[in-house]
Protein backbone atom coordinates (compact mmCIF):
# COMPACT_ATOMS: atom_id res chain seq x y z
CA UNK A 1 0.00 0.00 0.00
CA UNK A 2 1.38 3.37 -0.96
CA UNK A 3 0.42 7.05 -0.77
CA UNK A 4 0.84 9.58 -3.54
CA UNK A 5 0.40 13.19 -4.44
CA UNK A 6 -1.20 13.45 -7.84
CA UNK A 7 -0.53 16.72 -9.59
CA UNK A 8 -2.94 16.72 -12.46
CA UNK A 9 -3.88 19.08 -15.28
CA UNK A 10 -7.46 20.33 -15.12
CA UNK A 11 -9.03 22.34 -17.90
CA UNK A 12 -12.55 23.07 -19.14
CA UNK A 13 -12.17 24.82 -22.49
CA UNK A 14 -15.92 24.78 -23.10
CA UNK A 15 -16.23 26.80 -19.96
CA UNK A 16 -19.45 25.18 -18.83
CA UNK A 17 -19.46 23.77 -15.35
CA UNK A 18 -22.28 23.02 -12.95
CA UNK A 19 -24.89 25.76 -12.75
CA UNK A 20 -23.39 27.37 -15.83
CA UNK A 21 -20.24 28.28 -13.88
CA UNK A 22 -16.67 27.73 -14.94
CA UNK A 23 -15.61 24.08 -15.21
CA UNK A 24 -12.66 22.56 -13.31
CA UNK A 25 -9.35 24.27 -14.04
CA UNK A 26 -11.08 27.10 -15.93
CA UNK A 27 -10.79 27.73 -19.63
CA UNK A 28 -7.03 28.15 -19.61
CA UNK A 29 -6.35 25.20 -17.35
CA UNK A 30 -4.07 24.68 -14.39
CA UNK A 31 -2.56 21.98 -12.20
CA UNK A 32 -4.37 20.74 -9.12
CA UNK A 33 -2.76 18.51 -6.53
CA UNK A 34 -4.64 15.74 -4.77
CA UNK A 35 -3.54 13.27 -2.13
CA UNK A 36 -4.41 9.63 -2.44
CA UNK A 37 -3.62 6.96 0.14
CA UNK A 38 -3.47 3.20 0.52
CA UNK A 39 -3.00 2.32 -3.10
CA UNK A 40 -2.35 -1.35 -3.77
CA UNK A 41 0.72 -1.95 -5.89
CA UNK A 42 -1.25 -4.36 -8.10
CA UNK A 43 -3.60 -1.63 -9.28
CA UNK A 44 -3.19 -0.17 -12.71
CA UNK A 45 -2.57 3.53 -13.15
CA UNK A 46 -6.09 4.03 -14.45
CA UNK A 47 -7.57 2.12 -11.53
CA UNK A 48 -5.67 4.50 -9.25
CA UNK A 49 -7.33 7.38 -11.14
CA UNK A 50 -10.70 5.62 -10.74
CA UNK A 51 -10.18 5.63 -6.99
CA UNK A 52 -9.09 9.26 -7.03
CA UNK A 53 -12.24 10.08 -8.97
CA UNK A 54 -14.42 8.30 -6.42
CA UNK A 55 -12.71 10.34 -3.76
CA UNK A 56 -13.36 13.57 -5.69
CA UNK A 57 -16.97 12.60 -6.14
CA UNK A 58 -17.38 11.97 -2.43
CA UNK A 59 -15.88 15.40 -1.75
CA UNK A 60 -18.40 16.95 -4.16
CA UNK A 61 -15.70 17.73 -6.67
CA UNK A 62 -15.85 16.96 -10.35
CA UNK A 63 -13.94 13.81 -11.32
CA UNK A 64 -10.98 14.08 -13.69
CA UNK A 65 -11.83 13.33 -17.31
CA UNK A 66 -9.51 10.89 -19.09
CA UNK A 67 -9.91 8.67 -22.16
CA UNK A 68 -9.77 4.90 -21.82
CA UNK A 69 -11.67 1.83 -22.88
CA UNK A 70 -10.16 -1.61 -23.47
CA UNK A 71 -7.66 -1.40 -20.61
CA UNK A 72 -5.56 -4.03 -22.29
CA UNK A 73 -3.29 -1.93 -24.47
CA UNK A 74 -4.97 -2.36 -27.83
CA UNK A 75 -7.68 0.26 -28.47
CA UNK A 76 -5.38 3.29 -28.25
CA UNK A 77 -7.89 5.32 -26.23
CA UNK A 78 -5.78 5.87 -23.13
CA UNK A 79 -3.18 8.61 -23.24
CA UNK A 80 -1.62 10.80 -20.47
CA UNK A 81 1.84 12.20 -20.07
CA UNK A 82 3.04 10.81 -16.74
CA UNK A 83 6.05 12.47 -15.11
CA UNK A 84 6.90 13.97 -18.47
CA UNK A 85 6.69 10.77 -20.49
CA UNK A 86 3.77 9.75 -22.73
CA UNK A 87 2.23 6.56 -21.25
CA UNK A 88 4.61 6.84 -18.29
CA UNK A 89 7.98 5.42 -17.37
CA UNK A 90 7.74 1.78 -18.52
CA UNK A 91 8.77 1.12 -22.11
CA UNK A 92 6.41 -0.63 -24.56
CA UNK A 93 3.50 -0.05 -22.21
CA UNK A 94 0.27 1.89 -22.59
CA UNK A 95 -1.02 3.83 -19.60
CA UNK A 96 -3.77 1.27 -19.02
CA UNK A 97 -1.14 -1.44 -18.61
CA UNK A 98 1.05 0.57 -16.32
CA UNK A 99 0.97 -0.59 -12.70
CA UNK A 100 1.36 1.35 -9.48
CA UNK A 101 4.20 -0.90 -8.35
CA UNK A 102 6.43 1.25 -10.55
CA UNK A 103 5.78 4.37 -8.42
CA UNK A 104 7.44 5.04 -5.10
CA UNK A 105 5.48 5.51 -1.91
CA UNK A 106 5.04 9.20 -1.04
CA UNK A 107 6.10 10.40 -4.47
CA UNK A 108 4.38 13.11 -6.48
CA UNK A 109 3.13 11.97 -9.85
CA UNK A 110 2.54 14.62 -12.51
CA UNK A 111 -0.23 13.83 -14.98
CA UNK A 112 -0.81 15.90 -18.10
CA UNK A 113 -2.69 15.50 -21.36
CA UNK A 114 -0.98 14.67 -24.66
CA UNK A 115 -0.11 18.20 -25.73
CA UNK A 116 -0.03 19.30 -29.36
CA UNK A 117 -1.57 22.07 -31.42
CA UNK A 118 -3.34 19.41 -33.48
CA UNK A 119 -4.73 17.72 -30.33
CA UNK A 120 -6.83 20.40 -28.60
CA UNK A 121 -7.87 19.70 -25.01
CA UNK A 122 -11.55 18.79 -24.66
CA UNK A 123 -11.62 18.42 -20.90
CA UNK A 124 -8.83 17.86 -18.36
CA UNK A 125 -6.77 14.99 -19.78
CA UNK A 126 -9.01 14.25 -22.75
CA UNK A 127 -7.74 15.60 -26.05
CA UNK A 128 -9.27 15.60 -29.50
CA UNK A 129 -7.25 13.23 -31.71
CA UNK A 130 -9.63 13.32 -34.66
CA UNK A 131 -6.82 14.82 -36.75
CA UNK A 132 -5.52 11.24 -37.00
CA UNK A 133 -8.87 10.11 -38.38
CA UNK A 134 -8.83 12.88 -40.97
CA UNK A 135 -5.34 11.88 -42.10
CA UNK A 136 -6.62 8.34 -42.52
CA UNK A 137 -9.71 9.55 -44.37
CA UNK A 138 -7.48 11.39 -46.82
CA UNK A 139 -6.09 8.13 -48.16
CA UNK A 140 -5.16 5.53 -45.55
CA UNK A 141 -6.85 2.61 -47.27
CA UNK A 142 -7.03 0.46 -50.36
CA UNK A 143 -10.18 1.44 -52.26
CA UNK A 144 -11.58 -2.01 -52.89
CA UNK A 145 -15.32 -2.27 -53.38
CA UNK A 146 -17.02 -4.95 -51.29
CA UNK A 147 -17.49 -7.98 -53.50
CA UNK A 148 -14.73 -7.15 -55.97
CA UNK A 149 -11.93 -9.24 -54.48
CA UNK A 150 -10.46 -12.33 -56.08
CA UNK A 151 -9.55 -15.44 -54.10
CA UNK A 152 -7.31 -14.52 -51.19
CA UNK A 153 -4.49 -16.80 -52.26
CA UNK A 154 -4.16 -15.34 -55.77
CA UNK A 155 -1.90 -12.62 -54.40
CA UNK A 156 1.22 -14.12 -52.87
CA UNK A 157 3.09 -12.04 -50.39
CA UNK A 158 6.59 -12.86 -49.22
CA UNK A 159 6.59 -13.62 -45.52
CA UNK A 160 9.13 -10.86 -44.92
CA UNK A 161 6.92 -8.21 -46.54
CA UNK A 162 3.88 -9.51 -44.68
CA UNK A 163 5.80 -9.37 -41.40
CA UNK A 164 7.13 -5.86 -42.08
CA UNK A 165 3.68 -4.65 -43.01
CA UNK A 166 2.37 -6.24 -39.86
CA UNK A 167 4.87 -4.47 -37.63
CA UNK A 168 3.72 -1.15 -39.10
CA UNK A 169 0.10 -2.22 -38.75
CA UNK A 170 0.38 -2.69 -34.98
CA UNK A 171 0.04 1.09 -34.47
CA UNK A 172 -2.87 1.68 -32.09
CA UNK A 173 -3.33 5.34 -33.05
CA UNK A 174 -2.82 6.63 -29.52
CA UNK A 175 -0.79 9.70 -30.45
CA UNK A 176 2.08 9.14 -28.01
CA UNK A 177 4.50 9.78 -30.88
CA UNK A 178 3.07 13.27 -31.31
CA UNK A 179 3.08 13.97 -27.58
CA UNK A 180 6.72 12.86 -27.29
CA UNK A 181 7.99 15.02 -30.15
CA UNK A 182 9.13 18.54 -29.39
CA UNK A 183 7.70 19.61 -32.75
CA UNK A 184 4.49 17.60 -32.22
CA UNK A 185 5.15 15.82 -35.48
CA UNK A 186 2.90 12.98 -36.59
CA UNK A 187 5.52 11.45 -38.88
CA UNK A 188 5.77 8.11 -37.10
CA UNK A 189 2.01 7.65 -37.20
CA UNK A 190 1.74 8.56 -40.87
CA UNK A 191 4.83 6.52 -41.74
CA UNK A 192 3.43 3.44 -40.03
CA UNK A 193 0.18 3.79 -41.91
CA UNK A 194 1.64 4.47 -45.35
CA UNK A 195 4.25 1.77 -44.91
CA UNK A 196 1.76 -0.91 -43.97
CA UNK A 197 -0.08 -0.51 -47.26
CA UNK A 198 2.97 0.51 -49.28
CA UNK A 199 4.81 -2.69 -48.39
CA UNK A 200 2.04 -4.89 -49.75
CA UNK A 201 1.34 -5.59 -53.41
CA UNK A 202 -2.34 -4.69 -52.96
CA UNK A 203 -1.28 -1.21 -51.90
CA UNK A 204 0.78 -0.35 -54.98
CA UNK A 205 -1.80 1.15 -57.38
CA UNK A 206 -2.75 3.96 -54.99
CA UNK A 207 0.62 4.39 -53.35
CA UNK A 208 1.63 7.75 -54.86
CA UNK A 209 -1.68 9.38 -54.23
CA UNK A 210 -2.01 7.92 -50.78
CA UNK A 211 1.38 9.15 -49.65
CA UNK A 212 0.83 12.65 -50.97
CA UNK A 213 -2.68 13.04 -49.63
CA UNK A 214 -1.90 11.76 -46.18
CA UNK A 215 1.18 13.95 -45.87
CA UNK A 216 -0.78 16.93 -47.10
CA UNK A 217 -3.53 16.33 -44.57
CA UNK A 218 -0.93 15.93 -41.84
CA UNK A 219 0.36 19.41 -42.67
CA UNK A 220 -3.10 20.92 -42.78
CA UNK A 221 -3.82 19.57 -39.31
CA UNK A 222 -0.94 21.58 -37.90
CA UNK A 223 1.45 18.80 -36.90
CA UNK A 224 5.10 19.90 -36.79
CA UNK A 225 8.08 18.76 -38.82
CA UNK A 226 10.24 15.81 -38.05
CA UNK A 227 13.73 16.80 -36.97
CA UNK A 228 14.97 13.24 -36.56
CA UNK A 229 15.21 13.06 -32.78
CA UNK A 230 13.15 9.88 -32.69
CA UNK A 231 11.56 10.57 -29.31
CA UNK A 232 8.50 9.11 -31.02
CA UNK A 233 10.08 5.69 -31.32
CA UNK A 234 11.00 5.68 -27.64
CA UNK A 235 7.47 6.63 -26.61
CA UNK A 236 5.62 4.25 -28.90
CA UNK A 237 3.93 1.60 -26.76
CA UNK A 238 4.02 -0.78 -29.72
CA UNK A 239 7.73 -0.28 -30.54
CA UNK A 240 7.12 0.92 -34.07
CA UNK A 241 10.59 1.62 -35.45
CA UNK A 242 11.45 5.10 -36.71
CA UNK A 243 12.94 3.46 -39.79
CA UNK A 244 9.45 3.67 -41.28
CA UNK A 245 9.92 7.43 -41.32
CA UNK A 246 12.84 6.98 -43.72
CA UNK A 247 10.57 4.83 -45.85
CA UNK A 248 7.95 7.57 -45.86
CA UNK A 249 10.54 10.20 -46.75
CA UNK A 250 11.59 8.09 -49.69
CA UNK A 251 8.02 7.38 -50.82
CA UNK A 252 7.11 11.03 -50.47
CA UNK A 253 10.04 12.19 -52.56
CA UNK A 254 9.30 9.75 -55.34
CA UNK A 255 5.60 10.53 -55.18
CA UNK A 256 6.08 14.27 -55.41
CA UNK A 257 8.31 13.83 -58.48
CA UNK A 258 5.89 11.53 -60.22
CA UNK A 259 2.80 13.50 -59.38
CA UNK A 260 3.10 16.95 -60.94
CA UNK A 261 -0.23 18.19 -59.64
CA UNK A 262 0.83 18.00 -56.04
CA UNK A 263 1.74 21.26 -54.41
CA UNK A 264 2.50 21.87 -50.85
CA UNK A 265 -0.33 23.93 -49.36
CA UNK A 266 1.18 25.00 -46.13
CA UNK A 267 4.13 27.12 -44.98
CA UNK A 268 4.72 24.42 -42.47
CA UNK A 269 5.76 22.39 -45.45
CA UNK A 270 7.16 18.96 -45.25
CA UNK A 271 10.93 18.85 -45.54
CA UNK A 272 12.43 15.59 -46.44
Amino acid sequence: MADYKIKVWRQSPLGIGPGGGEGPGGKEGKFETYTINNIDSDLSFLEMLDILNQQLLQENNIPIAFDHDCREGICGACSLVINGVPHGPESSTTTCQLYMRHFEHNSTIIVEPFRAKAFPVIQDLVVDRSAFDRIMQAGGYISVHTGAATDANTVLIAKQSADDAFTAATCIGCGACVAACKNASAMLFVAAKTSQLGLLPQGQPEKTNRTLKMVQQMQLEGFGNCSNHYECEAACPKNIPASYIAQLNKDFLISSFTNKEFECQNDNCYES
Partner: peptide, 23 residues
Amino acid sequence: SGQIIDHCVAQGIPFARDYAGYL
Protein backbone atom coordinates in the same frame (compact mmCIF):
# COMPACT_ATOMS: atom_id res chain seq x y z
CA SER B 1 -16.91 -17.01 -44.77
CA GLY B 2 -14.51 -17.42 -47.70
CA GLN B 3 -15.56 -14.14 -49.33
CA ILE B 4 -14.73 -12.30 -46.12
CA ILE B 5 -11.14 -13.46 -46.24
CA ASP B 6 -10.86 -12.51 -49.93
CA HIS B 7 -12.14 -9.04 -49.19
CA CYS B 8 -9.95 -8.55 -46.14
CA VAL B 9 -6.82 -9.59 -48.01
CA ALA B 10 -7.69 -7.14 -50.79
CA GLN B 11 -7.96 -4.42 -48.15
CA GLY B 12 -4.37 -5.07 -47.14
CA ILE B 13 -4.92 -6.90 -43.88
CA PRO B 14 -1.59 -8.50 -42.99
CA PHE B 15 -2.71 -12.03 -42.20
CA ALA B 16 -0.02 -14.54 -41.24
CA ARG B 17 1.67 -16.19 -44.22
CA ASP B 18 3.96 -19.10 -44.80
CA TYR B 19 7.37 -18.88 -46.49
CA ALA B 20 5.92 -19.44 -49.92
CA GLY B 21 3.73 -16.39 -49.48
CA TYR B 22 0.44 -18.23 -48.99
CA LEU B 23 -2.00 -17.55 -46.17
